[in-house]
């Protein structure tokens, strides 16, 4: 049986596997973070994955975006990811929205999902996902990488959100350095947090930071800023 090893886990079992099979997850971005997220969610049997991605494969993606090959350069990432994930696990449904997340489509795309995983490289899209998820009461898994550093942060209704961290006041960094192994670590952690959320397991509301130069993880407790009203509407 495909899932025997994870069904054997006390935290999952048959009931948990059924939860995963029924789960609907939106993954925003199919790049460095998105591919490990999508791969591990697909392998784990998350039943419905929707990819939001409007980009095409470029040669400079190939150091970390492991589902794409040199023959894919110029082709849409979302279509390729859908095809390869479906081959990895034909039992799940993978769909692709060939658009960016926008003010207009964020709410309908987030609605009805069990979780959203943010795998993008800019602040504006992170804030769109943050706001849409809080309004819809859908948990969001947020992350970012820069060289050998990275972080993962769950945005849950009632807790701290990206606006509490001042994201609305900062500009997107200019193409930070990126190496596949860091994207793999952080994307795998995003998938792990997402799977725990889908299983109804507790998730620490902390930012988990990764320092690959020292090989250290550190949890940073973050509190909701007084006055933040996102997610109450």
């Amino acid at each position: 049986m495909r899932y025997a090893r994870q069904v054997a886990m006390q935290e999952i079992g048959k009931d948990g596997q059924e939860k995963l099979a029924k789960a609907q997850v939106l993954v925003v971005g199919a790049g460095g973070l998105g591919l490990p997220v999508l791969t591990y969610l697909a392998c784990a049997g998350v039943g419905c994955l929707t990819i939001v991605e409007d980009d095409i494969v470029e040669e400079s993606n190939l150091n970390r975006q492991f589902l794409y090959t040199p023959a894919d350069i110029g082709k849409p990432k979302g279509a390729l990811a859908r095809e390869r994930l479906a081959a990895l696990n034909p039992a799940i449904k993978v769909s692709w929205i060939g658009e960016r997340l926008t003010q207009a489509n964020a709410a309908p795309l987030v609605s009805g999902r069990d979780a959203v995983v943010d795998c993008v490289d800019n602040i504006a899209t992170r804030l769109l996902a943050n706001d849409a998820c809080l309004r819809a009461n859908v948990p969001l898994v947020e992350a970012g990488i820069d060289g050998f550093y990275g972080y993962v942060f769950p945005v849950l209704r009632g807790g701290a959100c990206l606006r509490c961290l001042g994201y609305a006041e900062i500009a997107s960094p200019k193409s930070p350095g990126a190496i596949g192994c860091t994207a793999g670590v952080i994307g795998s952690l995003e998938a792990s947090v997402c799977i725990r959320l889908l299983l109804g397991m507790p998730v620490a509301p902390d930012m988990l930071t990764y320092d690959g130069t020292r090989m250290e993880f550190e949890n940073v407790r973050i509190f909701r800023n007084e006055g933040c009203r996102h997610g109450e509407g």
Binding site: L33, D121, A143, Y151, Y167, I170
Partner: peptide, 10 residues
């Protein structure tokens, strides 16, 4: 006090 640089890429 915890200080962070601009959030990273994806």
């Amino acid at each position: 006090v915890a200080l962070f640089p601009p959030v990273g890429g994806g």
